[in-house]
Design a protein around this nucleic acid. Structure first.
Length: 582
RNA sequence: CGGGGUGUGGCUCAGCUUGGUUAGAGCACCGGUUUUGGGAACCGGGGGUCGGAGGUUCAAAUCCUCUCACCCCGACCA
């Protein structure tokens, strides 16, 4: 491709709408343009990267025996009503009607359609296991689209679904996917971690997320510095500390005028925050629940949702306190808090002689103990685990990191097949629901994630496996015969050798060409200009390391080809890895 | 949806508080001359319903009302 005709409108300045680095650089490098909030067009360079990622995914899906297919983006309401998600999904599902008033949705995901298809076509255990996948546009009318491709409303997703006859086969399909995902993200040149995850609206019990580690990530993960434990903060647990061995003292009410928050009480009484127990009042289904937790901890509402069996709850708001005159805001405590369901975080059981609110204005209780001063019926792990907590699996310590969720795999079990009545005839002649798994990758999000991990002041630094082109030939004076002839020859020969090259043949200043080359981030820059040509050399710059070498003209093409091949091999793009797995 | 903010040429922004020439700058774009290894210099040029609608006024980018779009902070997720 010649730069002079390439549609890559680069920008010197970042559009004001872009906040994070990947969004800015995608816009500046002329790879995407916005059409509406959370909706983007991929320009030629961006589309090339997208297709590269798609192809890596295809190779690895095909390798584990998954079969590619394509389902429509526009889906009838019917299967969604069958699964019950037509009502559950809420406003995030973009709904519309056709001219006859029939209901449709732009698919936010495809479990319903695929299950419907399997139900109609797969009748016998002999046809299982079966794994199907597609790379399709998804539409989710996000509450708040943001950060460019990171959280778009329309986005490209690879979604795969496995149908199995039993749990053992599901585990096998799931493990194949797990391995394939590891290969995919490695081949994309990314630093990532697989973590235990919550399964949310999709459902199922076992699930793992693949997180690309990056500061701009919207998720927090915790991983052990010693063993391989890693979990999303939503579900992370930690090993409990040793219980206190203090003598139990006698409870006592003390004055704490105007001291409401944990910090205030801690300072006022001279008691560390981890010896204060806070009592949080939540409202759900028109009733109240009190959660008690160590004062220096936050409640993990994801965990609370699991315990309550609903996501429909919230901390009592300022106005709502008026409805419950028995509750003294800022001074609520578990002692004598009758008629309200009480749940205690497990950690509370470790502490003795702690401080709680006295349920009286301007007063707290000290030397309070579970069992002595109040009873706890319900215990649960409700705390938000944080960096520095003890690993639940070993003696190590947990570390927190920000991540971008680029993949999520689920063992669904029979969640969809059961409600939709999707069964096969098993060996014993009886109909049984399929045991299913589903496996997603945010393909367009991956484009952004790759940039979040690979950039510098100058622009993007593409891993060679997903770069729009592998080599950019920068000719400083294309209007001079010598340079033009050399550049054309190098460019053409690289193409013949199977190298994807772009030739910057524009009549522009050297500075602009260098700046654009760095911005767009092609891994290898070949610079042709008078300075090195004098000594019969051309210059090669490695974008990632900024390393510069001079190659003699007569051997330059071979040396560039060698260089690119080495770079490909470094991210596992050897091309010799396509043998079929069983 | 709640809270905060922004809409002025392709991009970044000034002007708005306190209404008053023909609405400005830098970058980008077009023509020319000179340049030519890190976003070149000079000369000339084109491009604006000031997001939209309504209102106040002798007069509105500027004040008021409504509306639309976009961005940021919270609840969702690949």
């Amino acid at each position: 491709m010649r730069f002079s005709i390439l549609f890559a409108p680069t920008l010197k300045e970042s559009p004001a709408e872009a906040e994070i680095i990947s969004h800015k650089l995608l816009l500046r490098a002329g790879m995407i343009r916005k059409v509406a909030a959370g909706i983007y067009s991929f320009l030629p360079l961006g589309y090339r990267t997208l297709k590269k990622i798609e192809n890596i995914i295809r190779e690895e899906m095909d390798r584990i025996g998954a079969q590619e297919m394509l389902m429509p983006a526009l889906q009838p309401a019917d299967p969604w009503k069958k699964s019950g998600r037509w009502d559950q999904y809420g406003l995030e599902m973009m709904r519309l009607k056709d001219r006859n008033g029939r209901e449709f949705a732009l698919g936010p995901t495809h479990e319903e359609l695929i299950t419907d298809l399997a139900m109609k076509e797969v009748r016998s255990y002999r046809q299982l296991p079966l794994t199907l996948y597609q790379i399709q546009v998804k539409f989710r009318d996000e509450i708040r689209p943001r950060f460019g491709l990171m959280r778009a409303r329309e986005f490209i997703m690879k979604d795969a679904y496995s149908f199995n006859a039993n749990m053992g086969d599901l585990t096998a399909s799931y493990n194949d996917m797990y391995m394939a995902y590891n290969r995919i993200f490695s081949r994309c040149g990314l630093e990532f971690r697989a973590v235990e995850a919550a399964s949310g609206l999709i459902g199922g019990k076992v699930s793992q997320e693949f997180m690309v580690l990056a500061e701009a990530g919207e998720d927090t993960i915790l991983y052990c510095g010693t063993c391989d434990y890693a979990a999303s903060q939503d579900v992370a647990t930690s090993r409990m500390e040793e219980p206190s061995t203090e003598e139990i003292k006698k409870v006592k009410v003390v004055d704490t005028p105007r001291q409401k928050s944990v910090d205030e009480v801690s300072a006022f009484l001279g008691v560390p925050a981890d010896k204060i127990i806070k009592t949080l009042i939540y409202k759900y289904d028109n009733q109240l629940i009190a959660v008690i937790m160590r004062g220096d901890r936050d409640v993990n509402e994801e965990k609370l949702a699991t315990v309550l069996g609903t996501t429909n709850f919230h901390l009592l708001t300022g106005a709502e306190w008026q409805d419950y005159p028995g509750l003294v805001q800022g001074y609520v405590g578990p002692v004598g808090l009758d008629g309200i369901r009480l749940i205690a975080d497990n950690e509370v059981s470790l502490i003795r002689n702690f401080v709680v609110g006295a349920n009286l204005e301007d007063a707290h209780m000290i030397n309070v103990n579970v069992g002595e001063d109040f009873q706890v019926e319900e215990w649960a792990d409700l705390k938000m685990v944080r960096s520095g907590d003890a690993c639940p699996r070993c003696q190590g310590t947990l570390i927190s990191a920000k991540g971008i969720e680029v993949g999520h795999i689920f063992q669904l079990g029979t969640k969809y097949s059961e409600v939709m009545g999707a069964t096969f005839i098993d060996e014993d002649g009886l109909p049984k629901p399929y045991i299913m798994g589903c496996y997603g990758i945010g393909v367009s999000r991956l484009v952004a994630a790759a940039i979040e991990q690979n950039y510098d002041e100058g622009g993007i630094i593409w891993p060679v496996s997903i770069a729009p082109y592998e080599v950019e030939v920068v000719v400083l004076n294309y209007d001079r015969d010598e340079q033009r002839e050399i550049a054309d020859r190098v460019y053409t020969e690289l193409g013949k050798m199977g190298i994807e090259a772009v030739l910057d043949d524009r009549i522009e200043s050297a500075g602009k060409k260098f700046a654009d080359a760095d911005l767009i981030g092609i891994p290898v820059q070949v610079v042709i200009g008078t300075r090195t040509l004098k000594s019969g050399n051309i210059e090669v710059k490695i974008r990632s390391s900024n390393e510069r070498k001079e190659f003699p003209l007569d051997r330059a093409v071979d040396m560039i080809v060698e260089l690119v091949k080495r770079m490909r091999a470094d991210v596992g793009v050897g091309g010799n890895s396509v043998e079929q797995a069983g």
